[in-house]
Nucleic acid binder design. Structure first.
Lengths: 142, 142
DNA sequence: TATTGTTATACTCTATAACTATA
DNA sequence: TATAGTTATAGAGTATAACAATA
């Protein structure tokens, strides 16, 4: 039954998503972060990002992002840096303390997910990564 | 490089999760529901569920669940039904209107995810579903 | 006493609309 | 005028702790 197969894959995606969501909840909590803060800090481990791009990546309204950044800036985990070439804009970057927490959180998320997939043969894991990347990329350009 | 492969799969899982999360955001919004409400209503399409089991499945504190159910009950999308065999407990079930919205939301989520995976050959899709189910199940018994 | 669920409280998260500063 | 970001406001989501009702 073709329909049955399709329903199963959608359900599998939903269930897996639920699991990964809670990997973020748990990793965040272990580092005294909300899941949203954990996600933000993990993103920033690749380097400073502008507010506009952050809002796009996180799919948040700019005002929602302002508040999210406010709360982690208040805890001195990130700082806003004015863009000198366009003084309306600013970059968000990790502080020293923020980097420590961000890396610890990112490592914990990665370790948990790696453990989750440890049973898969290497070949399967490689193929799985490729397929999932393709699915995620196909939709991100919405 | 083995490490590189592992990092990629973890990253792929995170990115895919982000996409699926927003499928729920969008499907919920189209039906005037928050993502959490959409998730709750979709679960209830399989039939009434007790508060204790709902809290476990959604991984919420019982007080958080009380509030979530309050807000959809206030909109008459669900109702609480006392369990006659244990009068401390109650079941949560969809109302007629709630069923309509829940099914519409569930269908939209499923349709979007099916569209996302439509390019995959049937064989690949079947195998993917099996692998993802296994990953999700392995972790749910935490 | 133990368990099921609610209430009280304090935050965080989010969107919409109005605003400020810069371009 | 247009754009980048903030502020004001309102409501939803969440956890902890204390509570009520039932077992």
């Amino acid at each position: 039954m073709l329909v049955g197969v399709e329903v199963d894959l959608a359900t599998a995606l939903v269930r897996l998503t639920h699991v990964v969501d809670h990997v973020f909840v748990d990793a965040g909590r272990a580092n005294d972060l909300t899941p949203q803060q954990a996600q933000l800090l993990c993103l920033l481990t690749d380097g400073p990002i502008g507010m506009a791009e952050l809002a796009k990546v996180l799919r948040l309204e700019k005002s929602s992002l302002s508040g999210l950044v406010d709360r982690v800036e208040r805890r001195e985990l990130v700082r806003r840096v004015r863009d000198e070439s366009d003084r309306r804009a600013c970059w968000v970057e990790l502080t020293g303390q923020g980097t420590k927490i961000a890396v610890a959180t990112h490592d914990e998320v990665t370790a948990t997910l790696d453990a989750l997939t440890a049973d898969l043969p290497t070949v399967e894991r490689t193929r799985l990564a490729a397929v999932l990347f393709r699915l995620a990329s196909a939709h991100s350009g919405r």
